[in-house]
C-alpha cells in the first residue's frame, strides 16, 4: 500500500473513443480535505474522468499523479487507497448487505472485514437489516450500503458518481454529513453530480465540464445553480 498522498494532480488529460473526444486536455489539482464537484450536462465527460481517476480507464493523453505516484506505478497499492461509488452501486443484490461488505473487505485484504462491515452498517443505520438481501432494499438504503462499501478500507481518494440520485432530503443530508466527516479526516473527495442545490456550500472547488472540456470561469459569487448556468452556457 502507498502512503497517504496530499495532492491529486491531473495534467492535460484526454480520452478519445475513436474520433469522439470524451475528455480534452483537462488540468486541475486538488488537495487533502478538498471536495471537488464535477458539474456539467450529460455526456460532458464526468464519468469518464472519474473512471480515469479510479484507474479503471487509461487516458489517451496526459497524466494523473496521486502525490508522486502515477496509476501505472501505483498498481494494486494505489487502488487500495481509492474508494469509488459508481452510478450503479457495485453491490450484489442476491447477497445480504453484510455479505457484500465482508466480501469487498476481504478483497481489499482487511483482516477485520466482518467487524468493520458490522460497524459500517451500524453507522449507516442498517444494522438491524444487515442480514437482508440487498435486492429487498430501497434505493436510498442501497446507496448507504454502497457508500459504506466505498469507505470500508478508509481510502485517501473518494470518487462518487451521482451519489445523491434517488435519495430523499434526509438521506441526502446524512450523506452530506458523512462526506464532511471524511473531509475532516483529510480525504480527497471528487464527486460528479447534477444535484446542485444539495452540494451548494459543500464543495470546496467546482469544475464545470462541457463537451469534455473544463470551462474556465474564474472565482464566482452567488448560488451554485446560477454559476453553473453561466459556465455551461458561456460561449
Amino acid at each position: 500500500m502507498i502512503d497517504d498522498f496530499e495532492r491529486l494532480s491531473v495534467s492535460s488529460l484526454s480520452r478519445h473513443y475513436g474520433r469522439r473526444k470524451a475528455l480534452s486536455r483537462v488540468t486541475f489539482t486538488c488537495d487533502a480535505g478538498d471536495i471537488v464537484g464535477l458539474l456539467g450536462p450529460n455526456g460532458a465527460g464526468k464519468s469518464t474522468l472519474l473512471a480515469i481517476l479510479g484507474t479503471l480507464l487509461a487516458p489517451s493523453e496526459g497524466t494523473v499523479e496521486y502525490g508522486t505516484v502515477t496509476a501505472e506505478k501505483g498498481g494494486a497499492g494505489l487502488r487500495a487507497r481509492i474508494g469509488m461509488l459508481g452510478h450503479d452501486l457495485f453491490l450484489y443484490p442476491e447477497l445480504t448487505a453484510l455479505e457484500n461488505l465482508v466480501f469487498f473487505g476481504r478483497m481489499y485484504g482487511l483482516p477485520d472485514a466482518p467487524a468493520r462491515a458490522t460497524a459500517a452498517l451500524d453507522r449507516a443505520g442498517l444494522g438491524e437489516r444487515a442480514h437482508d438481501a440487498v435486492s429487498g432494499y430501497s434505493r436510498g438504503m442501497r446507496q448507504r450500503v454502497a457508500l459504506e462499501r466505498a469507505l470500508l478500507h478508509r481510502p485517501r481518494l473518494l470518487l462518487l458518481d451521482e451519489p445523491f440520485t434517488g435519495l430523499d432530503q434526509a438521506s441526502a443530508a446524512a450523506l452530506v454529513g458523512r462526506l464532511r466527516e471524511e473531509q475532516a479526516r483529510g480525504v480527497l473527495i471528487v464527486l460528479a453530480t447534477h444535484d446542485l442545490d444539495v452540494v451548494d456550500g459543500l464543495l470546496t472547488r467546482e469544475l464545470f465540464l462541457r463537451n469534455g472540456r473544463l470551462m474556465d470561469v474564474g472565482a464566482g459569487q452567488g448560488p451554485l445553480r446560477d454559476r453553473y448556468h453561466a459556465a455551461i452556457t458561456a460561449s
Binding site: 494494486a76 487502488r79 487500495a80 459508481g86 450503479d88 457495485f90 485484504g109
Partner: peptide, 15 residues
C-alpha cells in the same frame, strides 16, 4: 454487468 460489480472487482487491490 447489472450492478457494474465487475468494475468494483477491478478496483480492488487484488491481482
Amino acid at each position: 454487468r447489472q450492478a457494474d460489480t465487475l468494475r468494483a472487482l477491478m478496483l480492488a487491490p487484488a491481482d
